Amino acid sequence: MADTVKEIELKKISPSKLNPRLEVNIERLNELAESIKEVGLLEPIIVRPLTNGFEVVVGERRYRASQQAGLEKIPAIVRAYSDDEVAQLNLIENIQREDLSAVEKGKVCKYLLDNCPGKYPSQTALAKKIGVSSDTVSLWLRTVEVVPKEAQKYVAPSTISGDVPEGKIDYLTAVKVGRAVEEPEKRVEVIKKLAERRLPAKERMQVIKRVALEPEKPIEEIIEEVAQAPY
């Protein structure tokens, strides 16, 4: 039986408490809101019923853009989902779109492993369910473990092209900082500075190595020395 699309008042819909996204791309959100103003919301979101309304399951960005566009009602499909099903759907949807950072993916994986051991008894079982390798899941979890909360916003989403947006750092470099630098506050500072300075990969590794060997030396000084050194 096909899903029924309903028109639901936006004020009756709340954002998902299980959405793993750390930040929203404002530029993309604005573009989507402008499109919705022109032609409306063409693709229904998916919601689940709550006691006093509905919660977004799939389509958080469309939901937020519709709010921004000033809509009163939007098309939605209502389905009953458990918390672990919502978390899994969020993860799979964004893995397919390469829309989340390794930190955000790691947080969802940790939630599923901690809260649904019967369904996901191991990293291997979870990896198989979401269609990635167990090594990938392990690395996502490692990113959450070694990258301090204050630095997680600097970790960029993974993309096929490998492009890292300005002001971000790739998750492999972030993990290397976490492994090499012991003090959490120092990790935050190193990740932040490397995100601000778009150094080549070889120079980033030199900075991390130098910080680990000379923890008392100012990071800016180390970065300048590495950037000016002939390699």
Rank of each mutant, 00 (worst) to 15 (best):
11 K>L: 10
120 Y>F: 15
200 P>A: 03
121 P>Y: 03
126 L>A: 07
37 K>A: 08
202 K>V: 13
168 K>G: 01
216 E>G: 05
92 I>D: 01
19 N>W: 00
68 Q>I: 12
99 D>P: 02
85 E>T: 00
43 E>S: 14
178 G>Y: 04
173 T>Q: 02
113 L>H: 06
13 I>V: 07
9 E>M: 02
169 I>R: 09
78 V>G: 09
147 V>A: 11
217 K>F: 06
2 A>Y: 04
94 N>W: 01
101 S>I: 05
157 P>I: 04
139 L>R: 15
3 D>Q: 03
91 L>V: 11
73 K>V: 12
66 S>R: 06
178 G>N: 02
140 W>A: 09
66 S>G: 03
224 E>Q: 11
7 E>H: 10
205 M>F: 11
97 R>Y: 08
140 W>R: 03
181 V>W: 09
166 E>V: 13
139 L>M: 14
194 L>I: 06
45 I>T: 07
185 E>N: 11
213 L>F: 05
223 I>F: 12
209 K>D: 10
126 L>K: 02
205 M>H: 07
205 M>L: 13
63 Y>A: 12
91 L>W: 07
166 E>H: 02
106 G>S: 13
144 V>K: 00
31 E>Q: 12
165 P>Y: 00
181 V>Y: 09
217 K>R: 14
167 G>S: 08
82 S>I: 01
100 L>K: 07
102 A>R: 00
187 R>Q: 14
100 L>T: 04
115 N>A: 05
133 S>N: 08
76 A>L: 09
131 G>F: 12
210 R>A: 15
61 R>I: 13
50 L>D: 00
111 Y>D: 08
213 L>M: 13
124 T>L: 15
102 A>D: 08
182 E>R: 15
106 G>I: 09
36 I>H: 02
196 E>A: 15
101 S>N: 10
100 L>I: 05
120 Y>G: 06
102 A>P: 07
180 A>I: 04
164 V>P: 02
225 E>L: 10
181 V>L: 12
36 I>N: 03
97 R>W: 03
127 A>M: 04
93 E>F: 11
205 M>W: 00
115 N>V: 05
114 D>F: 08
220 E>P: 01
72 E>C: 03
139 L>H: 05
156 A>N: 05
147 V>L: 10
23 E>H: 10
155 V>E: 04
178 G>R: 00
218 P>T: 07
127 A>L: 13
40 G>L: 12
17 K>C: 01
55 E>A: 14
18 L>R: 00
39 V>E: 12
82 S>A: 12
176 K>W: 04
158 S>W: 09
144 V>R: 09
108 V>M: 13
183 E>M: 09
48 R>N: 02
175 V>F: 02
33 A>Y: 06
95 I>S: 11
139 L>Y: 05
18 L>P: 02
55 E>P: 06
103 V>D: 02
161 S>I: 01
82 S>E: 10
28 R>G: 14
184 P>N: 02
132 V>Y: 08
199 L>R: 00
108 V>A: 15
117 P>C: 08
162 G>R: 01
59 G>K: 06
20 P>H: 04
45 I>L: 15
43 E>W: 05
186 K>R: 15
167 G>E: 01
150 E>D: 11
103 V>Y: 06
58 V>S: 15
77 I>P: 10
144 V>G: 13
105 K>C: 15
208 I>G: 13
205 M>T: 09
172 L>P: 01
114 D>I: 07
